[in-house]
Design a protein around this nucleic acid. Structure first.
Lengths: 168, 168
DNA sequence: GTCGAATATTTCGACATCGAAATATTAGCA
DNA sequence: TGCTAATATTTCGATGTCGAAATATTCGAC
C-alpha cells in the first residue's frame, strides 16, 4: 500500500518480537489467557445459576462472605471482600435487607460501625445454593482426577499468594 | 471481625470449610474458590496497570484484541471477546473513537457490519503499553517453575473444555 | 423477484457502581 | 476536658452496563 504510513504497526510487531526475543514467556501468556478464559466462563455459569435464586454474583458474595466468616461483618469489610466501593455496598445491602436476607444492627462497642448478619432466610438460601451448585461444579471438574484437582488448587494458591503481594 | 484482619490464606481456608460444611465437595470447592480468588485479584492488578494509560480493562481488551488479530474486528465480536453486551460495546467504541484510538468503517461486503480498527494513535498506545511492560504478565507467575506453568495451563484448558460444553 | 426470518448494530430507559462530599462517632493528645 | 485527626457509613451526581426494542441489511424459501 503505497502512501500508507505503516510505522505504528511495524513498531508494534517489532516490540512484540523484541519482547519474545528478550525471553518473554510463552508459558506466561498461555497461563494468563487460560485463567481469564476460565474465569469468564465460570462467571457466566455462576450468573446463570444465581439467576434462579434471583441473586447477582455480588449479592452472592455478600451472603457467602458472611456465611464463611460465621459471624456478622461490617459493610466496609464486605465491600473489600467483594471488590466494590463502600458506597456501592450500601445500596446492595439495602436491596438484600428489603428481601429479608440480611439485617443490619449497630455495633454496640463502636457506634460508627454497622454489623451485617444473615437472617434465617439468608442462611437457608446459602445452604441450599451450595448444595445445588455443587452438583454442577462437580461436572465442571469431571475430567480431572483427584490428583489433578489437588495439583490445580495448589498451583492456583501459589499464584494467589504472589498476587496478594503485588496487589495489596 | 474480632482481632485483626485475617490473612488471605486463612480467609481461603475458611471459605472452603464453609462450603464443605454446607454440603459441598471439598476438592471441587477448593479449586473453584481458588479460581475465583485469583480472578478477583487478577482483575485488580490489571486495573492498576492500565490506570496509568487512562484505560479500563474493557477498553484495553478492545485495543489488544484488534492488535492481536492484526486486522479490524466487528463490534459484536469485540463484545463477546471482552464479555460485555453488544449495546455496551457501542458506547465503549464511541469513547475510544472520541479519543482517536479506534475508527469505525462500514464493511463493504456486508453493510450491516462495522469494522473497528486501530488508528495510528491506537497502535502507538498499544505498543507503548507493551514496551513499558505495564501489561505484560511477568511477575505474577514468578513463583512457578516452567513445568508448573505448563501443568497449570494444561489443567485450566481441560476445565475450559468442559465449561464450554456446559455453558455454551 | 418478493416476503419473512435471521443477523448486526444502535438507541433507549432502568439500574448498579464509582468517587467525592457529608455525617457521625471514636481515638489520640496536649 | 477539649480539640483535631482518623474511621465507618451513607448520600449524591455522573457514568457504564444491561436487556429490550428499533433500525438496517442480508439470506433463504417459495
Amino acid at each position: 500500500m503505497a502512501g500508507r504510513k505503516p510505522s505504528a504497526r511495524d513498531e508494534y510487531r517489532r516490540a512484540v518480537d523484541a519482547y519474545v526475543a528478550a525471553g518473554g514467556d510463552e508459558s506466561v501468556q498461555r497461563v494468563i489467557t487460560a485463567a481469564q478464559s476460565m474465569n469468564r466462563k465460570l462467571d457466566q455459569w455462576y450468573a446463570r445459576q444465581l439467576a434462579d435464586l434471583e441473586l447477582t454474583a455480588g449479592e452472592w458474595g455478600v451472603i457467602a462472605g458472611i456465611a464463611r466468616a460465621g459471624e456478622p461483618l461490617t459493610p466496609g469489610y464486605l465491600a473489600e471482600l467483594t471488590s466494590v466501593a463502600p458506597s456501592s455496598m450500601t445500596h446492595r445491602l439495602d436491596r438484600l435487607a428489603e428481601r429479608g436476607l440480611i439485617e443490619r444492627t449497630p455495633d454496640a462497642e463502636n457506634r460508627t460501625r454497622v454489623l451485617v448478619g444473615l437472617t434465617d432466610a439468608g442462611w437457608k438460601l446459602f445452604t441450599s445454593a451450595i448444595r445445588s451448585s455443587n452438583v454442577v461444579e462437580s461436572d465442571v471438574l469431571q475430567d480431572l482426577t483427584d490428583a489433578d484437582r489437588d495439583e490445580l488448587a495448589r498451583l492456583l494458591e501459589i499464584v494467589i499468594l504472589r498476587l496478594d503481594h503485588i496487589v495489596a
